[in-house]
Design a protein around this nucleic acid. Structure first.
Lengths: 342, 342
DNA sequence: CGATTTTTGGCAAACGTTTGCTATAAGGCA
DNA sequence: TGCCTTATAGCAAACGTTTGCCAAAAATCG
């Protein structure tokens, strides 16, 4: 920086002000300084700035291992949209994987308490906590994505899962379906609770009882979506009275389930309608094309960043809001009026 | 840190030595210091350390936008395996998207020249370069992944694409196929050159001419894989003399192509065999299940990290090696002896 | 017990910025 | 010219570490 100052013929403090602050310096000298910096190929040292200012420009995204697999593309899309939004405000994105091991937790806490990161976006239900240090008490702005954790004081961005699944169940009822098969994610999981709740609400609204839906799965995590579908196909085969509509909580489940069930001779959608979650592009090319509820992850990413930057902006912690992004049903041929049987 | 020193009853310099360096302090006092640090919930400030030591512990991964889409899961798997490997050595992973815009390039250069990152793993064919600053001259250890850039002096990790596609083409020839349809990625792209080259090599080895293969695509980037497959289906329909085997350079292409082509009444694999690239899990559940050449991205990630850490370790730049990870053909029903026609 | 080695204390400089301060310089206005 | 406003210079402290140095203390050894 001293070199730049010398070349531009100004003081070192002026260079600093020109480069960091916006309006504190005359436009003419700023131009001179910029030119000098460019000529020298000078780039301010981010570590030094961060140290001096007491805050970094790095945001960390906490990803549970379970999100990594499957055709749904949520991870890449989330990362891309979040990174894009962050960059516009001069922030960088750092990845932090959260596993079941204490090491990954400790690692995340080190990042938080060590001043490396300025804020966090978490896609996990659990906040790392070990040895008395907890991410919740790190004094770090945090927003939760995918899961509503506004009760715990974290601003959150979620989709209207419950409503979406309620609507699509109502659609199925309207088509004439009366018996349902529900492919569950991990038991007790936020998404599973919401989605199953939506099914039940729709049933009740139509005067049907919860007995109209058979649950399958619930043991495996979403990352084993394909396996869940396969097991569900076995469960389905064992049923004496077959449901006519399937509601799957991920595209992976739906795809493997459908593939398996078709080999037993069942026709989709004539014998069985299927709808699932996530909006994976590949669903369009299944046979038959699969109806799916799109997760607007890009919008969610943007919203999460907006919330986080707002939280960074204001010192005092506001009350936690929960922003709901509407998901969208992509209707394809896998959903139809039940033709055979019943 | 001063607090920790006081509580442990030692000097501040001893605390520093105990926490940062390994062997410079007695085991007993180190334990005392660790206990004090834990009790106080102390975490060393990474920015300050980085500033003082002159190097950060952050590695940046440069991702081109084109990699983000599709069912192939390369991005998540690469990120996960790289991050996992890095953490074991105390490094963190930062994401840097490389678009076609100058802004993203400038951003990456700022990270490199501003001392934020210690090294980079790039999955892009182009090194950011603007205003005389270039990533190549940032004095940063860099390794290239997916693309062989050892000619340009970058240690690289790639798969044996050419060989893999040569082998599978030879398999197809052995099954009796004589006319081929090749779904290309972007023209001139490293992968496309390698893979197409493999096809031609296999043809020549079997005494067939390059005329035995019809190319389709080449205009769109891999991120539009599904579209490429759809267009290819049109191209295929227009052919008077139909090939009996398809070699697709991504699973996305193969999936949409197969879906489309089946609607014209063609049977797979009886009328047409298909094999593709990437090893997406979803291929197992296509109808028929799709043969695909698995990209061992996790191994590649590990290897890339190993290479990078080695480069960081030794000050002087060694000659650039190119590490080849073997890919694996997952054989499924989409490849068979041509039954009809011919 | 004295000699030697290992460990620690204490000090201070350094890393590259930012920022508050005062003082000087430049420019505009009456 | 004198006064006021605005812009910059120059200085110095601060951010939280690491690290070289030397001296002091402790441990080890013969």
């Amino acid at each position: 920086m001293a070199d730049v100052a010398r070349l531009a013929g100004v003081a070192i403090s002026t260079v600093s002000r020109a480069l960091a602050n916006p309006g504190r310096v005359n436009e003419k000298t700023r131009a001179k300084i910029d030119a000098a910096a460019k000529q020298l190929g000078y780039t301010p040292n981010a570590l030094a700035r961060g140290l001096r200012v007491g805050k970094s420009n790095i945001i960390m995204i906490v990803l549970p291992g379970s999100l990594y697999y499957g055709a749904s593309q949520v991870i890449p899309q989330v990362l891309q949209s979040i990174n894009k939004s962050l960059i516009q405000d001069g922030y960088n994105l750092m990845i932090a994987n959260l596993g079941r091991d204490e090491i990954s937790e400790r690692h995340i806490l080190d990042l938080a308490f060590g001043g490396t990161v300025r804020g966090a976006i978490i896609l996990s239900s659990k906040l790392p906590e070990v040895d008395g240090r907890s991410l919740a008490t790190a004094g770090l702005p945090i927003v939760s994505m995918l899961l509503d954790m506004s009760d715990a004081g974290l601003p959150s961005v979620v989709t209207n899962d419950r409503e979406a699944v309620r609507d699509v169940t109502a659609d199925l009822i309207r088509l004439g379906h009366r018996r349902f098969f529900y492919l569950a994610g991990p038991e007790g999981n936020y998404h599973d609770v919401e989605r199953y709740g939506g099914v039940v609400e729709a049933l009740e609204a139509a005067g049907l009882s919860e007995a109209a839906v058979v649950r399958s799965g619930g043991k495996l995590d979403y990352q084993h979506g394909f396996d869940i579908g396969l097991e569900a196909a076995e469960d389905f085969a064992a049923l004496t009275e077959k449901p006519t509509a399937v509601i799957a909580t991920s595209d992976d489940m739906a795809i493997s389930f459908m593939s398996q069930i078709q080999q037993t001779g069942l026709k989709i959608p004539d014998d069985l309608s299927i709808v699932s979650f996530d909006g994976s592009p590949v669903c369009a090319f299944c046979s038959p094309p699969l109806s799916t509820i799109e997760q607007p992850v890009e919008d969610m990413g943007q919203a999460a960043v907006a919330l986080l930057l707002a939280a960074i902006g204001q010192a005092a912690k506001q009350s936690a809001v929960c922003k709901v992004i509407r998901s969208r049903l992509i209707l394809r041929e896998s959903m139809a009026v039940p033709k055979n049987g019943a």
